[in-house]
Design a protein around this nucleic acid. Structure first.
Lengths: 143, 143
DNA sequence: CACAATTATATTGCAATCAATTCATTTAAT
DNA sequence: ATTAAATGAATTGATTGCAATATAATTGTG
């Protein structure tokens, strides 16, 4: 019965792939209000927390590479939410730093997690199990 | 402590998003061998099962719309794995049908699920819980 | 010091994705 | 029967994402 393995319903990856897309899609109306895309939003989330870090480190946090981050960061810079400047100690490093305007954006975003939580309606227990399992897989794959 | 909600570590969506990407990435070397992308692969999976269906139905199976599917299906057609033809009864419907070559491709793909399973190393119990939770979320969101 | 290897970012090209719009066909309403 | 509404695909434009390559700066070795 090897054929059964190639049915969509028997894949673990597919619901993972589809669910991630659909959940990200739920953010859109809320993110539209503050003119951010999902990727820009999670980037800002790291910066609200860390204030300043280089592209390499940011990429590790977000599982994204410079090919994705470079244009995205340039856009955030143009919007005035971040500064991009080469490190003085090591000019290979580009340091990304949040601006005052970037900090202020956090206020406007503060309700988003609740709004998303409301539409996911997953019991706290189950959410925790899901969270742990996802990170377990993520760490296992770890490059 | 509303600020804590906006930390990456407190998000459920982020590990979902990152994990999906990383797992899909695991498929690449195997899919490269048969010259398919992940999206083309799951499309073929539906067709290996259903043989023939219209774009609308296919899109519902895969959580994808015609904007993504149209160019993808044209590529699969060019590769000779599928046929695309308008329905005679209702010409609005484009019927996608698997070809002999498409059926044969299944043989070459038959080992992929095992290979991915091997590198995910998730206990069967946990995999089932994850699977169920993801579909629960997916159905809840359901358009 | 010179040169090779490494590291960090940027660039390019291609596939995927979605939103919004357009186009053609079918169905429904009067 | 004509027109309006709906349905299904295709198209367009913007963003994301990755792989591969390029460029520049730094480090290590002799």
């Amino acid at each position: 019965m090897k054929e059964d393995m190639l049915r969509l319903e028997n894949q673990l990856c597919f619901p993972l792939y589809a669910c991630a897309k659909e959940v990200v899609k739920q953010y859109k109306p809320y993110l539209d209000e503050i003119d951010l895309t999902y990727t820009q939003y999670i980037t800002m989330m790291v910066l609200w927390d860390k204030k300043s870090l280089n592209v390499k480190t940011l990429g590790k946090c977000l599982y994204l590479d410079s090919g994705t981050l470079t244009p995205l960061l340039k856009k955030l810079e143009k919007q005035g939410y971040i500064k991009r400047e080469r490190s003085v100690e090591d000019e290979r490093n580009l340091i990304v730093t949040i601006t005052k305007k970037g900090e202020e954006l956090k206020e406007k975003a503060s309700d988003i997690p609740n709004k998303i939580g409301a539409c996911m309606k997953l019991p706290k227990e189950d959410a925790k199990v899901l969270y742990d399992t996802l990170y377990r897989i993520l760490n296992q794959i770890a490059d």
